[in-house]
Simulated scan of single mutants.
Amino acid sequence: MAELEIYLGIGDLHFCEAPARIRTVLGSCVSITLWHPARRVGGMCHFMLPTRNRRGDQPLDGRYADEAMALFDRQIARHHTRHADYRAKVFGGGNMFPTRPQPVQSLDVGRRNIDIAHRLLAERGIPIVAEHLGGDGHRKLVFDVSSGDAWLAFQDLGDVHRRKSE
C-alpha cells in the first residue's frame, strides 16, 4: 500500500491509520500530534489561536486549539480508543518578529498557544513525549503515523537577525 502524504494548512486536522505522513509549516501556530502505538493510528492538527467566542450553532473550527482538540476527541471516539493510550508531541509557538519589542504575555499568541496545548492534553491525560516550542523562528514538521516519529526543521530567525546586525 502506498503511503499517504497529507499537507496541513492553518486550521486543518487529519487523523488516519498508517501508512501516512502529515506535513505542515509553523510560525506562532502550534501543531499537536497524537499517536496510538498499538493501533498505529494518529493525527495532527495546526491551530493558530487558543479559542474563540463560539456560538452553539457554529461548526467546530480547527483554527482554534480548544475546537481542534474537540475534533481530535471525535476521532479518538470513532476509533474506539482512549485518550490515555495516545502519545502527544507538540511543536510551534514561535516568535515570527524577533526584532520587534516583545508583546506583553497576554498578547503573545505563540505563548498562549503553547499554554493551551499543554492544558488541553493534561485535561485528557495524554502524555507529552516530545516538544519543540517557542523561540524566534518557524518550523517545518513531518509526522509519520506508521511509527509516531516526527521530524523537525527549525529556522532560528533570531540567529538570522543577529548575523545581519554584526
Rank of each mutant, 00 (worst) to 15 (best):
T99R: 03
A150E: 04
H83C: 14
D159A: 13
Q58S: 04
I10N: 12
H118N: 13
D156I: 08
H80I: 09
K164F: 06
H36N: 09
S147F: 02
K89Y: 11
W35K: 03
F143K: 03
Y86D: 00
I116Y: 09
P98Y: 02
R87W: 12
H46E: 12
A77T: 10
R23S: 09
T81P: 06
I22N: 02
G148E: 02
T33E: 00
A122I: 13
W35F: 04
Q75S: 12
I126H: 07
K140D: 08
H118W: 14
I76P: 07
G93W: 02
R163L: 12
R139N: 10
M96F: 10
F15V: 08
R139H: 12
H79V: 02
V41E: 00
I32W: 00
A117N: 12
E166W: 15
F143I: 10
G42Y: 04
G56H: 07
I116C: 14
F47R: 07
L107T: 08
L26Q: 11
D61E: 15
S106F: 08
H79C: 09
H14S: 14
Q155K: 13
M1T: 15
G42H: 05
G94R: 01
H83T: 13
R21S: 04
L120D: 03
E131V: 08
D108V: 05
H138V: 11
S147K: 00
Y64W: 07
D61A: 06
P50N: 00
R112A: 12
N53R: 05
R74W: 15
A122F: 14
K89C: 04
W151G: 03
P101V: 01
R63I: 06
A150N: 05
R82T: 10
A150Q: 08
H14L: 06
G11C: 07
N95A: 08
T51I: 08
G94Y: 01
D156T: 09
D149E: 08
G27Y: 02
C29E: 00
Q102D: 07
V104D: 05
F15H: 09
I126V: 14
H118D: 11
L141H: 08
V142G: 06
P98W: 02
L8I: 10
N113S: 09
G9W: 13
R124A: 13
R124E: 06
D66C: 12
E123H: 15
V30H: 00
R139W: 13
K140C: 10
L60M: 06
N95T: 13
F154S: 04
G137V: 02
S28Q: 07
H138T: 13
I6P: 06
P59A: 06
D66I: 05
S147Q: 00
K89I: 09
E131K: 11
D57R: 00
L60F: 03
L8A: 11
L34T: 00
V160K: 10
D12C: 14
G94M: 02
E17Y: 06
A20E: 01
E5L: 15
